[in-house]
């Protein structure tokens, strides 16, 4: 592998680790609003991974739906239910 490919490989693995961090934070935090904002960041990291893995169509769809629309739906639900804390 040449130099550029090694850099891309290292960046890909680092992004995978970040993906795990955000997923664990979204699951184990107590505040629901924090959890949902972290889920949007999870989708944003996933977009970069898709672009590195040569899938621009899936990256665009994930950017619009995963990071944009789903976040809106979750925020509306939390506003409607008013049950902010986990327990």
């Amino acid at each position: 592998m040449t130099g550029g490919k090694v850099v891309i490989y290292v960046i890909l693995n680092m992004l995978m680790i970040f993906l795990l961090f955000t997923a664990f934070f979204a699951v184990f935090t107590k505040n629901l609003l924090n959890s949902i904002i972290t889920l949007a960041i999870f989708s944003a990291i996933l977009i970069v991974i898709f672009v590195i893995l040569q899938a621009p169509d899936a990256a665009l769809a994930e950017a619009v739906i995963g990071a944009g629309l789903t976040l809106t739906f979750f925020v509306i639900t939390i506003n409607k239910t008013k049950d902010w804390q986990n327990e």
Binding site: P56, D57, A59, L60, A61, V64, I65, G68, L69
Partner: peptide, 13 residues
């Protein structure tokens, strides 16, 4: 890249 699904979601925004 793009297509009907992505463009439709942006119009729905």
């Amino acid at each position: 890249p793009g297509g009907g699904f992505v463009g439709g979601v942006i119009l729905a925004m």
